[in-house]
Design a protein around this nucleic acid. Structure first.
Lengths: 227, 227
DNA sequence: TTGTGTGAAAGTTTTCACAGCT
DNA sequence: AGCTGTGAAAACTTTCACACAA
């Protein structure tokens, strides 16, 4: 299924996930100056050797004894990740969360612009929101195919209630979307070739809560009775 | 630094991160019925062997040839993760995103309740919002120490602008917070003993965008000139 | 027969440590 | 002297495969 192109990507998934971190750190630096892997590590919370390995895997090299040229490195990274372009983004579900995400991530400075928003709520359809550095008007989902085609968007944010998420994702995929950021608190099945990332706010908190319970076992009145 | 208690936790981090997944899947089932690891796997997108190993590591066992009793398993899992209690939650930064997160995750059914919200914006201070299944009134940050002490909260959500994030986290930690869910688009340094999880919406999108670029190299008008 | 429990293999990711440019 | 580039080791995670209990 993954053999459509001759060279399979040898870039480790873990590396890919860190690239945006490096980009942000680099963006805060003087493009003309140099950065060492140690400095990048400090700014991102990553191990210095990891930084060097990540960049090295992408074919991005620094100068021994000196470091990397911040501006050059950022440009090369951006080209790799696609951060050198503005990606059109569709938002499905314009409740509180959908709006916040649209507003937060849908800025050109981040590399994204919200080109369409959908919701089934009649009170929302037709309303125009300021999101990021532009505006969107909420459309009915039955306009999705036409709008998706017209805008050429391949990325979408799903912020619907859990019950609707699978259907919404299916519709998005049918309309040509191939990358979905899923905020509905439910895992969704997608066909091969479509990328999905689940972000579940409650889950993140639950993970934190777990650690707190470990760290402060007696904090609650329940007696800890590990035998 | 981690040797405060005799037995260091032998539960792999990867396992911990999956526990909320299992909990959600189990909650949707008849508590009296049985589930097989295969069914749990199907519902969560995890490999069946992984499911068994995860549960086994926690000392949670099923019956061979039958499976696990859904209700029992959920109860035991919940006790482990702390999902059997309602955790008080503080929200710092009540913009769009802070409000959405508060509203989304701050429900008792999820195991959390928002006990306080802070913002520096004078227009927000004093306002009362419906969040989750309750309400909060936004306070000025200088009330943080008192409120934190009174509520006993140890978990906080940070949804401030990046520039304020480090200071806000420092203040939260000084007030006794030991677990932070950080939505500000910047990494924050915390002392040992404090857990932090970074959720960066733009970063998630950028990771998706990376994959799209790999999958559909010619989609943009820019000529791909990999030498 | 069905589905758990788990050693052992395979794969992935992180970290170390040091040779080699500048 | 300083910092990259990278093999090799260590740590962690996933997956396999099969004995074994119900």
């Amino acid at each position: 299924m993954t053999d459509s192109v001759p060279t399979a990507p040898p870039v480790p998934a873990a590396t890919i996930n860190r690239l945006p971190l490096y980009q942000r750190a680099l963006a805060a630096l003087d493009p003309r100056g140099t950065v060492s892997s140690a400095e990048l590590a400090e700014a991102t919370g990553v191990n210095p050797a990891q930084v060097r390995k990540d960049l090295s895997v992408l074919g991005l090299h620094g100068t021994r004894g000196v470091g990397y040229v911040a501006g050059d490195l950022l440009a090369q990274l951006s080209e790799h990740t696609g951060a050198d372009e503005i990606h059109p983004l569709i938002v499905a579900g314009m409740g509180n969360l959908g709006l916040a995400v649209a507003n937060h991530a849908g800025r050109r400075s981040q590399g994204f612009t919200v080109v369409a928003a959908f919701d089934v709520d009649p009170k929302l359809i037709g309303r125009t929101f300021r999101v990021g550095d532009g505006t969107v008007t909420v459309s009915h989902p039955n306009e999705l195919p036409a709008i998706a085609r017209r805008t050429g968007a391949v990325l979408a944010v799903v912020a619907t209630p859990p019950a609707a998420a699978q259907q919404v994702c299916d519709d998005l995929i049918a309309a040509g979307i191939t990358g979905i950021l899923n905020f509905s608190a439910t895992p969704v099945r997608v066909p091969t070739g479509v990328h999905i990332r689940d972000v579940d706010l409650a889950q993140e908190l639950q993970i934190l809560a777990y650690h707190e319970r470990r760290a402060h076992p007696g904090a609650d009145r329940e007696e800890v009775n590990i035998r």
